[in-house]
Design a protein around this nucleic acid. Structure first.
Lengths: 365, 365
DNA sequence: CAATTAAATGTGCTCGAACACACGTAATTT
DNA sequence: AAATTACGTGTGTTCGAGCACATTTAATTG
């Protein structure tokens, strides 16, 4: 076998030396055929005699041929259209950093013929998601990266995409793997356990409230996962030092929000820790301001108000769900899939970053 | 100005539409000259009449021309050699993950003509660093990415590289910016503050020991920085709740290590927290095993034994210095610098990841 | 004013892969 | 046996940038 790399030693230091990169022309020469024949073998276009096929495959087995993606791309000269579908950042600033990721990927791949378009929907309206997604499909993109906020509708869209030969990746929210073979996000169960661990470190013992805000808990499996993970940590501690209670609040009816939370605290006067399962920790902080309290708060996401309260010491820990990286990774994978035939992993779970007042700045790129 | 992008609206959704990408041929046509002339203008090769130069620059100002790096690369067809110089991972497993990063970058850029060679030195021998580095220079790489463990010698090497027109990036350890305009690592002062914050969260008050192990503290600015940051956090708390003491230990003479540490604890019986400034937290844990204790430990780095003790609850927090990402970033920047003329930032500070038993798995890629 | 030199400009080949097309040879048909 | 088809096979062009070389035009000289 004609290896393309071999070890050489130089002053007692061994290192790998890369050999010549083989081109189609080289293969043609080695096999004693023309580059056209090699090309037909490589692309399985047929019209090749058994003798020629044998000669070429023999050489292909001996060397390690990988087509030069540069030249390929230059010739193909196709513009791949990627579409990103995500909730409107004006209504929930959690999604704000995603635009930056889109620009970065666009910039990185602009010369390779990657075009990215962003489409937003109103996260409070199922119909908005559906409508926007259908519009996107009519723009005939090569791939869609989306937040499948509404499971049923998302599956409908995915099915439509499959029919139209549009590749689909989803991020942030999980979707049944029958529908998408490419998810970028986090292990939410484990993220609940991280929150629990942090709470445990800070409190040692006490009463903890799990606060869910605004979402339809029954259909929000992501909240359920976080709660499960959180409770599992304390269960595995096997101690009676902790008491855990769950409450569901609605912030859209904001008049009632503060009252509900405060009356919850009245009913559970020993609460010394609150775990907020979505990015709205700041509304809990603001509600608590009405009374002096020394309650540890662990929440999610680096939105402006959360960061402020984190730095002020009102929030103890935030877990970073990294929407920007999710988009960045999702788009990069799609781009490299089209350009360089790179495989897309079926699931990419990002690390669960723990953020405090002292390291938050490093995460704000 | 002929803009290359413009906004269009589709069903109330505005998005950017990319226009034609201009080529040298296009510019030649627009300016009414040949592509040779455009080429001469672009590369400032002279031999262009003022009239032609004016015509071409006029067009160049109207459109946004960026040469296609793909085509450029294909034509140039040069193999860029990058060298990585780092301590031997067999003697300090902290460096182990770096090899993975090298392979990844190599894999990613192999078709673009990037070749990477790894060279290791014995971190305990200044001469080994110097010798290895000099050897590397004789291999005439286009760039070197190195760990400037020994400041004086590293500066010598950098100077030699400058003479030989070899680009230098440094990672993990900072070096005077007169010598390198490209550092990848972390803000160590801030990482000391993160450690302090975590300690504060866990302890609330008490006596804390800062443990430096094995290194020449006077010349190890990285340890000094961490200590400074750590102490600055507690100073800014403006409280008398904490007492902080520093101790320097030597692990190479391991017989004495345990005794020294234990006698330190005897002298400071109230210690309830230890901050270990390098990756050897596990040796502290092992020394403490000899006596029952409830001391919180905050340390650095995801080396095998640290991870084990973290999961067992013996270590509370680890700060991840991300050697692998450092190498990955450093090499990627160099590759993109040569291939696509991308600018290299003078300093890239990676986020300070806080690792607990519950999120450690996500960082072990 | 023709001859020479200099300056400006255009043409054409290269890189590697993809693909259209043309050419060849053998098998089949009329 | 000539004509038609089928099937292999090789050639040549394209993509965009870079650069060598050829060509044209202008300036200078004898």
């Amino acid at each position: 076998m004609l290896s393309s790399t071999f070890l050489i030693s130089y002053n007692k230091v061994f290192y790998i030396c890369k050999m010549k990169k083989y081109t189609i022309k080289d293969i043609a020469q080695l096999a004693g055929v023309s580059k056209g024949t090699v090309d037909r073998v490589l692309h399985k276009r047929g019209k090749v005699s058994e003798i020629a096929l044998e000669k070429v495959t023999k050489i292909l087995n001996e060397i390690e041929y990988k087509p030069n993606p540069i030249a390929k791309n230059l010739k193909i000269n196709k513009i791949y259209k990627l579409a990103v579908i995500l909730p409107d950042a004006q209504k929930d600033s959690y999604w704000e950093p995603c635009s930056g990721a889109i620009k970065e990927v666009e910039n990185e791949f602009q010369h390779f013929g990657i075009e990215i378009n962003k489409f937003v929907f109103d996260a409070s309206e199922t119909s908005s998601f559906l409508e926007t997604s259908l519009n996107v499909i009519t723009t005939k993109p090569d791939a869609i990266l989306m937040v499948p906020l509404f499971q049923k509708e998302a599956k409908e869209i995915v099915t439509k995409c499959n029919i139209n030969n549009i590749k689909v990746s989803v991020f942030n929210n999980y979707i049944d793997s029958n529908y998408s073979n490419n998810f970028i996000g986090q292990d939410l169960y484990q993220s609940g356990r991280v929150a629990a661990k942090l709470m445990d470190m800070v409190l040692k013992k006490g009463t903890i409230g799990i606060v869910h805000i605004d979402e339809d808990y029954q259909n929000a499996t992501h909240l359920q996962e976080k709660e499960k993970g959180f409770r599992s940590y304390f269960n595995s501690l096997n101690t009676l030092d902790y008491d855990i209670t769950t409450i569901h609040l609605n912030y859209k009816k904001s008049e009632s929000f503060n009252n509900s939370l405060l009356s919850f605290l009245d009913k559970n006067p020993n609460i010394n820790g609150i775990f907020v399962t979505i990015s709205k920790s700041y509304v809990v902080v603001e509600a608590l301001k009405e009374r002096a309290s020394d309650i540890a708060i662990v929440g999610y996401d680096l939105v402006k108000k959360n960061i402020d309260y984190l730095k002020q010491g009102e929030i103890d820990f935030l877990i970073h769900q990294k929407p920007k990286q999710q988009v960045y990774m999702g788009l990069s994978y799609l781009a490299e899939y089209f350009l360089f035939d790179k495989e897309i992993p079926s699931q990419l779970l990002l690390p669960l970053d723990i953020v405090t007042s002292e390291n938050v700045d490093g995460y704000l790129m």
